[in-house]
Design a protein around this nucleic acid. Sequence first.
DNA 1: CCTACGATCGTCT
DNA 2: GACGATCGTAGGT
Length: 185
Amino acid sequence: MLARPVLEVAPRLLGAVLRHGDVAVRLTEVEAYDGAGDAGSHAFRGRTPRNEVMFGPPGHLYVYFTYGMHYCCNVVCGPDGAASAVLLRAGEVVGGIDQARARRPRSRDRDLARGPARLCQALAIDLADNGADLSGGPLTLTLGEPVDPVSTGPRVGLRGAPDNPWRFWETGAPSVSAYRPAKPR
DNA sequence: CCTACGATCGTCT
DNA sequence: GACGATCGTAGGT
């Protein structure tokens, strides 16, 4: 399934569960990054040490560090070498909630994984998990039943990329991240 | 609810 | 040397 085209995979990841140790998050919001031809993608300017996992086989986790303090994670998908990936933007904690609360002590439950960096915090994902195989082991992604209805809209925080509706979320889910417009400069 | 701003450092030009 | 697939807080409506 993850080897299908990214625009097909992304909405199917809604409802999937990502588990890391005891904490499990059910995904409610994702964004598609469509390979080296996508101006919004880290892969747009070619392969670099940071993004090399994106260019590998599907089913692995691409983790990056940003703003000097946050991690975000993606599921690599599409055929091997396509460099496409799905950013995991938000979800709801469905397992290990005590541990997730301990990692984000000031969050209300619905906010524990509401946002890509918060999701990584709740799941304790960092660069040590870059490239991890999601088919088993400590980090596991389990697909669920298709979610319906699904809403779509523009991706968050991008500048200089076409305004494609490549953000997908479960309609009405309370854990969907708050929209933040791209910061003007 | 909303908008504004600072934190903080790896990555790429 | 500029910028970033963000977040938490502060303050206004």
